[in-house]
């Protein structure tokens, strides 16, 4: 065995430059050393073993199960179920969508099940907060799951893990919020449509959805987005100066979420400004050999940003 093989095996001794370079290259992927959240562990096997002799407990559980089953018949929804409304009182209420996933209504929420057809599963959130969860094995195509509100509707475009996100609605103030935990949501209203990727949130109002922001957006950018929302509330399009200020506030790769939405404008100056900033912060969606900076469609940018700039926190 030579000393290079010794370094490969032992990780000590005379360093092999090739292995050292590879170790360095791959180090960003190593386990981050985060602790295991002990609250996730649940009851351990020894605890269950201790309880096993208590048959009366099993009997009690059977009774509870029977009661839960009776209750679930009232809340269980499946393809072809008729329209009905659910209200969660003090505690949360789970609506199983078998075998698809579930919608969890938090206390005080009211939700109408509209229909479940071959092409669409649609519910309407009237008030409160609901959490949408979809099983990995039961995924359908884009926009199969739609949650309506009086402020617009949310379509689940993509999803990789179970919990898509949560949507809140306050009919008193006519405001709401969507937080996406995984995948991508598209929020549409008469005013505009925005996309909300995992880790981002958007506020809803009668003027339509605001520009979405990732949770790690700076206060400065949030203020600018609020100013833009104030314009939208008045039914006024962004003026060029505000748009340029907004672009200038985007300084980190994930700020490109705001920039992407500015590509939707008909104002050529605003669009060009946003696209130049996108290139500066996220790179180019396609290779360029030479010549002036070309323009890419919003959909090309969306796919590019989803697999790059929007994936990682700052």
């Amino acid at each position: 065995m030579n000393e290079h093989e010794d370094y490969l095996f032992l990780g000590a001794g005379t360093p092999d430059p090739e292995i050292v370079a590879l170790e360095h290259l791959l180090s960003p992927l190593a386990h981050d050393g985060c602790e295991l959240p002990l609250e996730r562990l649940g009851p351990d096997a020894s605890h269950r073993a201790t309880l096993r002799p208590w048959l009366w407990l099993a009997a009690a559980m059977l009774v509870s199960l029977a009661m839960a089953l009776a209750l679930s018949r009232a809340t269980k929804l499946q393809r072809g179920s008729s329209s009905r409304t659910f209200v969660a009182q003090q505690e949360s209420l789970t609506l199983p969508l078998e075998p698809f996933g579930q919608v969890v209504l938090q206390g005080g929420a009211e939700l109408e099940f509209v229909h479940w057809r071959d092409d669409e599963l649609r519910v309407r959130l009237r008030r409160g907060t609901c959490v949408v969860e979809i099983d990995e094995t039961a995924r359908q195509g884009a926009a199969f799951v739609v949650v309506e509100t009086e402020l617009g509707e949310v379509a689940v475009e993509e999803q990789a893990r179970r919990c898509f996100g949560e949507l809140s609605m306050d009919p008193g103030t006519h405001t709401g919020e969507l937080r996406v935990h995984d995948g991508l949501g598209r929020v549409g209203s008469e005013a505009r449509t925005v996309v909300v990727p995992a880790g981002a949130a958007v506020r809803l109002s009668l003027a339509g959805p605001s520009l979405p922001l990732f949770g790690d957006a700076t206060d400065e950018l949030r203020k600018m987005v609020n100013r833009a929302a104030a314009y939208a509330a008045k039914g006024v399009d962004l003026d060029t100066k505000l748009a340029v200020d907004l672009v200038a506030t985007c300084r980190m790769p994930r700020d490109t979420l705001v920039l992407w939405h500015l590509l939707q404008t008909d104002d050529e100056v605003q669009r060009a400004s946003a696209e130049a900033a996108l290139v500066a912060l996220a790179g180019r969606p396609e290779p360029i050999v030479k010549g002036p900076l070309p323009s890419w469609s919003a959909e090309v940018w969306l796919a590019f940003l989803q697999k790059g700039a929007w994936r990682y926190a700052k």
Partner: peptide
Amino acid sequence: PVGREHAPGDAFAVRAAAARA
């Protein structure tokens, strides 16, 4: 993606190179 330009120390570029390896 080919043609994407990042400074060598850019976190995205570093992680993307690690992912390729």
